[in-house]
């Protein structure tokens, strides 16, 4: 149970860690868009190099990056084979009864898999080097201009912060309650899906009760410290762009430029 973590932050003090979270957040969005514009397998070399460079600079062990692919390993395999068998363009390479594998299928399968791997590696790199709290801060700051249109940026960020704060607590609590019920003979592992769902009731009821109790206590604690929303609140950590953010943006722009150039000239 405890192994479930949302942010998979890898503590460090590298130049990448120190980048403004807004830079990283926007960079990640741009990166996703760029990846979707890549048309040829060979061109993936450029973003791959970029990811490798960032990984090196961030001093994140490669094993962490590989581990972040683990949750989607089935999706990867599934996408690979679906494309392999379903895409029927180009020469036939191999045939067995109704299964036909074509050149186009192989190409598409590799292309899609690479795209997914690169997408995940890039986004993981951001969550590995940015704390969830910093990300929430960045999101709040980036969304604040929309506040004029009635968008509750601060409230949203506060909700996210609180949720993030309580995820480990609730996981720990769920773990404890599950153990306590297991000691009373509860069985969470056998039976069909309905039985299993039903067997979760003895865990969910106490968990909800405690979540509500905690929410109540937190609301009380916040109110007693005069919390009244975002108006006029100053921050302890003020986000400031630094020269390294400009350098990062330039590096990213260079990569994008090269992709555009390569695709325009050779593809």
């Amino acid at each position: 149970m405890r192994d479930i973590t949302l942010g998979q932050y890898f503590p460090g003090n590298s130049p990448i860690h120190r980048l403004d979270p807004r830079t990283k957040l926007l960079g990640m969005l741009a990166y996703i868009i760029v990846i979707f514009f890549v048309k040829k397998i060979t061109v993936f070399l450029l973003p791959a190099l970029f990811v490798a460079m960032v990984t090196y600079l961030a001093r994140v062990p490669l094993s962490y990056l590989v581990r972040s692919l683990k949750p989607i390993r089935f999706l990867l395999v599934f996408m690979f084979f679906i494309n392999l068998f379903m895409v029927k363009t180009g020469d036939l390479i191999w045939e067995w009864r109704f299964i036909q594998i074509t050149e186009g299928g192989v190409y598409q399968a590799v292309y899609i898999t690479l795209r997914l791997v690169l997408l995940l590696a890039g986004t993981s790199l951001m969550t590995l080097t940015t704390t969830p709290i910093a990300l929430t801060d960045a999101l709040e700051k980036l969304l604040t201009p929309f506040g004029k249109l009635g968008f509750p940026a601060h409230e949203l960020a506060m909700m996210m912060t609180i949720a993030l704060r309580f995820i480990p607590t609730l996981i720990e609590e769920a773990d404890k309650i599950m153990k306590a019920q297991m000691a009373r003979g509860a069985d969470f592992e056998s039976g069909n899906i309905f039985r299993r769902a039903k067997s979760m009731i003895p865990v969910l009821v106490p968990l909800f009760i405690s979540a509500f109790r905690r929410a109540d206590e937190l609301a009380m604690a916040m109110e007693s410290r005069c919390y009244h929303g975002g108006k006029g609140r100053t921050r302890m950590h003020v986000l400031r762009f630094a020269p390294r953010d400009a350098a990062a943006a330039a590096a990213f722009a260079a990569m994008t430029g090269m992709i555009v150039l390569v695709q325009a000239l050779w593809v």
Binding site: K176, I177, A180, Q181, A183, R184, P202, I209
Partner: peptide, 13 residues
Amino acid sequence: VGMVFQYPEYQLF
């Protein structure tokens, strides 16, 4: 083995 955890009252449901 009967196991009573710390604060067992939180397991009532």
